[in-house]
Each structure stands twice: as structure tokens, then as C-alpha cells.
Simulated assay, not measured.
Amino acid sequence: MRLQLLMICFFNGALGLQNDSSQAEFNPAVIFSHATELLEGDILQIKCMIPVTEETQGQLCIYLCKDGIGTRMERLTKSKSTQEFNVQQVAIKDSGNYSCVWSTKKHFVQNVTAEGHNTVFIQVREFGLGSIYLRNTVVFESASVDLICFGCNTKTVKSFHMYLCMNGAGVDMVVAHSDGIARFTLGQVKREDSGNYSCVYSIKKNPLGNVAVTNEKSVFIQVTEMDVHQWSVESRNVIRLLCSVGLVIAAVAFLIIHNFYSIKAMFCTTSTPATRPQTPKPDDTASCSIETRQLKERRESGQTQLSSTVSPQGEES
């Protein structure tokens, strides 16, 4: 019995020494990642960098670890100090803490248990939470409603599947381009269409029945019946406004026409003396004739007196 206990302790100690020696063979590296939240089907891009020392001048092996366990391995030459890892079509199971280590020896990836200088937490989601925009939140029955959804810009994929959700359940889907913008139109809405509307997006196409996501970035649409009285009041207001505008236009037109003819008449009056001589009045003509006749009679009487004082021989009478 004692011999068995001694053997167990010996093997446990040997195993611990082996693990410690294997841990000592790995050196920490620095990890970088631009994106920490990804969608299923996206590409995970991570860079690992090692310090440049005399020890790192030869050929090295660099390992990408997730939650302290190796997942991938790449070789580094002495001319490189940075290695990029690309994980294609990530899934939810790929979420976790990532780090990088390096070694001068090659090991089986699954046997690498170490962590680097720092860790990066990568979250992989099935759906991304988008934003929604709506101009009017209160609409009448049978109206048309336009909603605009905004996702995220990405360079790794060319298009998204954008889903419109009502009360957390998918009701419509369109394909959005890399700018992450999509438009939805609800036509002939009814009162039962009232509810909270939100947008989610994914790379993979999912049936609408499988889309059940709660997004706090939502808008509430209230569909109400058409109020006939309110509609008539609004119609009367519109008619009054149109009549007022029509009266203003008519008044302005009248003033323009009146001013035009006034200016035209003034122009004709001032130009008449220069173009056409005035006709003398009847009273002026009569007075002129009388004065002429009197002047003629005076001349004739003067000549008669002169002839009576001088004789034909030139003597005085």
C-alpha cells in the first residue's frame, strides 16, 4: 500500500515537472485586434508581435491561444517580428480570450497551454444590433410607413441580411450592402401593426421564424383610426390657407396692373405737347380778329388825314 502511494506521488511530481518545463519553453507575445465583436460567418483577424532580441533572431514558432490553449501555429523567420492569424467564418463557439506565445521549438498545438503579454476578448454573435429611424410614430390606418435601418460598415463582407423585427420577432428581411443601410416599407398598415420595431442583421441568411432578438434601439409605432372630424377640420384649414394665398396673389396682381396703366398714362400725357401743336381756343381766335381789324382801320384813317393836308402840287391847303 505504501509502495503504491509512493509511486503515485512520484508520477505526480514528474508530471508537474514536465508541465513546468513545457511552460518555460513558451514566451509571451503581444496581441492586437481591430474588431472585438464579430458576426457568425465573419473573418477574425489577429496580429501577434514578438520582441526583437538575440534570442529571436532564428526561426521561431508562434502560437495563437484561446482561453490559454493553443489553436493555431505559424513559423516566423528572422526577418519578421509580426504574424497575422486569419480565422475564416467564425462561429459562436469561437468567442473567448485570445493571446499569443512563441517558442524556439515546435510543439503540437493542442499541447500548448500558455498565455501571452495581454489578452483580447472576442465576442461572436449570431445577430448584430442595428439602429432604426422613423419620421412619424403615429400613423393612420391604410397608410404607408417607411423605416430605415442602420447596421455597421465592414470591409470583410460585401452584404448583410437586415431583419425588421416587431416586438422581438422577425417580420421582414432585405439585403443591405457594405454600408449597412436598408429600407423597409409597411403598406396598408392596420391597428394590429402597432408595436415596437427594431433592426438586427447577420451575415448568414436565417428564416424569419428563427429571428427572435430583443433590441433596445427600437421605436414604437401607433396605428390609429382615421378621425373624420379631425380630417374635416384639417381640410377646412387647408382650404382657408389656399383662399388666403389666392387673395394675396390677386391683390398683388391688381396692384401690378394698376401701376402699369398709371405709368403708361403719365408717359402719354407728358409726351403730347412735343408731338402735336395745340389748337387755339375759339375765344382767342375772335380776340385776335378784332385787334387786327382795329389796327387796319387806324392805318386807313391815318393815310386819309395825310392826303387832305398835302395838295397835289405839293402845297399846303
Score class of each variant (00 low, 15 high):
223 V>H: 00
188 Q>A: 15
56 T>E: 02
298 R>G: 12
296 K>P: 09
160 F>H: 01
34 H>L: 15
147 L>K: 04
253 A>Y: 05
192 E>N: 10
188 Q>R: 14
135 R>Y: 11
58 G>M: 03
239 I>D: 08
3 L>G: 13
52 V>D: 08
244 S>H: 14
183 R>W: 05
122 I>L: 02
89 Q>W: 09
76 L>F: 00
211 V>F: 01
140 F>G: 13
174 V>W: 06
49 M>V: 13
41 G>A: 00
230 Q>V: 08
54 E>S: 12
15 L>T: 08
8 I>V: 12
279 T>W: 10
52 V>C: 08
239 I>V: 11
37 E>L: 05
274 A>D: 09
260 F>S: 07
295 L>G: 13
163 Y>T: 02
239 I>S: 11
165 C>K: 01
41 G>R: 00
260 F>Q: 06
159 S>P: 06
208 L>M: 06
107 H>T: 08
284 D>Q: 09
210 N>H: 12
241 L>H: 14
282 P>E: 03
217 K>P: 08
204 K>R: 06
18 Q>T: 08
65 C>W: 02
62 I>N: 00
75 R>E: 06
287 S>Y: 12
14 A>F: 10
130 G>E: 02
123 Q>V: 09
57 Q>P: 08
100 C>L: 02
153 N>K: 15
271 S>F: 12
210 N>G: 08
162 M>T: 03
129 L>E: 12
287 S>R: 15
81 S>Y: 09
149 C>D: 04
260 F>M: 13
166 M>S: 06
159 S>F: 04
202 S>P: 03
201 Y>C: 02
184 F>H: 00
226 M>A: 13
251 A>D: 06
238 V>Q: 14
176 A>L: 03
227 D>A: 02
161 H>W: 05
276 R>S: 15
16 G>C: 13
122 I>G: 00
4 Q>Y: 14
298 R>K: 15
219 V>Y: 02
315 E>S: 15
122 I>F: 03
101 V>H: 00
38 L>V: 03
175 V>D: 07
